[in-house]
Nucleic acid binder design. Sequence first.
DNA 1: CTGAAAGCGCTTACAG
DNA 2: CTGAAAGCGCTTACAG
Lengths: 334, 334
Amino acid sequence: MKRITISDVAQHAEVSKSTVSQYMNKRFDYMAPKTKERIRMAIEELGYQPNIVARSLKQKSTSTIGVIVANILHTFSTQTIRAVEDICNEQGFHIIVCNADDNPEKEREYIEMLRAKQVDGLIIFPTGGNIELYQRMVKEKYPLVFVDRIVDGLETSSIMLDNESAIKMAVDHFAEKGYERIGIMTTSLHRHVTPRVERINGFRKALGDKGIPVREEYIKSMEVEFIQDGLHDMLSADEPARALIAGNDLALIEILRYIKTNHIRVPEELALIGIDDVSFASLFTPELTTIAQPTFEMGKQAAELLLNKIKDPDFIEEKHIYRFQPELMIRQSC
Amino acid sequence: MKRITISDVAQHAEVSKSTVSQYMNKRFDYMAPKTKERIRMAIEELGYQPNIVARSLKQKSTSTIGVIVANILHTFSTQTIRAVEDICNEQGFHIIVCNADDNPEKEREYIEMLRAKQVDGLIIFPTGGNIELYQRMVKEKYPLVFVDRIVDGLETSSIMLDNESAIKMAVDHFAEKGYERIGIMTTSLHRHVTPRVERINGFRKALGDKGIPVREEYIKSMEVEFIQDGLHDMLSADEPARALIAGNDLALIEILRYIKTNHIRVPEELALIGIDDVSFASLFTPELTTIAQPTFEMGKQAAELLLNKIKDPDFIEEKHIYRFQPELMIRQSC
DNA sequence: CTGAAAGCGCTTACAG
DNA sequence: CTGAAAGCGCTTACAG
């Protein structure tokens, strides 16, 4: 079967392609009612659907943006994407989501692929491993917004959680309940991923503010597969930690697994606060106290910023880093 | 900044556009080594990246497929998509994922949008609400694969769980443990969504096989927001159900919420088996017994089938319905 | 009010 | 071994 093109419609309606095109783009300013009607009928009879690929080629715009997340397994990523999608839908933009799987090589391929596909802009949760590429895009003024991670020395918008404040909330809450032996477990720090760095630095600072001495053996950051061992070290020592912050949802799952295998009672033996408000937080026994990121607002901001940059190439941002405040969801695990 | 095109490269290398195009497509059959080298250098110096939109227009193929899921909130959907993505990646295809949100209107818009974008084929987890549109695509021989749901009277591939067998596994396992007051709770049945229908019919059949009388008050299917009430009816009656099947992961979450608010002990007061092996099944207390769908195999089959149809327009399927066997993951909730 | 023509950036059959 | 030309399906500035 042959696809119907604008020429077919033009012939069928006995007008020119230009006129059909005007019709399709709702430029009715000068169109005679009967012309309009003839075109309407031709379109209906033939079942014409315009070819967006051809239009994009001519218009040099695809009304599509790319979203590349470092790791789609984080609930933060999926929730933020939902918000981006909502905003884009409202404005007639489509999104293509790619998962770099924490792999800079994959990230590079996706960036190149999406640009070859002529997406109008990119929202990237950067792996941090393609500095020169990021820099080139910034220099070219390619519409770009970063989420969740700051890339040192790059002057482009970054949508960030106020990580320091998030950690402070957790530490303060523990301190209020009388805990002093507070630990933090988060996933690996290679490539200096911003939130992990900020969360650990913020942790030291928050302890200091409360006059609680920092104990290095309570600060751990490791690849997911080593977390069980790390927890063993932290929690089976002579003076084990009594309160623990999960640096993100993946760390939290490992902690819950450890707690389960070792029959640790929460919060009696170990108080727990997780960053990222996971879906099952209130279903768990005990219900999990978490620090929620305002994922919807963050995704919305990312999308709006990017769309502004796309629509106005000279769009000037008043600032580069947008910080969002987290919220402490007090439940039962502390 | 101006994007570099094939003409720029041709000029810079002092050859024709045709020759650059041959080079880009690795048709080196007759190319003189020095021509090759000149083009290579020009591309490097200019930082040329071909415009895939232009290529797609000419080739009438975008190497992209669309995936429209009825509801992305189901773990089944996300897991299946991952498999589809893997297979497509291997074969140089990209995917665009859309969520119809169980809304046929949205589904229709997405189908039209993706076809306008000239995707080479579609994998649809159908809402069931666009029969004529599905039919038109089948008639046009548009490359299409359905997942999870069969649309009555449509002759196209459908990738399905063996739902009857899944329910039988659950019922048999309950029966072995001596349960007779077995119930099932699943999400709404409007539009006769296949798995829900098959699961409920299979449920009646499985009970019959075991000689257990069917009690209508133990069979419930309702919109998520009414499930709490439905559970109340089923579990606070004079003779409450003692064992319960969650028809899918969303129903399971509602059941867990009910169990929590009402302090029901599992499995002592209520045994539980969920269809869909949710991520937190083994983290829960008690660990949840589930029926796992082979999501990877199902997604793989869907992708391979679609790619075959795309590559060979005359591809004939020997059958239309592909059934996959579930697996019982025995843990502690029964 | 409508149409002819040029052009978006590629690919490809064909000529030489 | 390489190039000129046509064409994919649109849009748009311009002429009439």
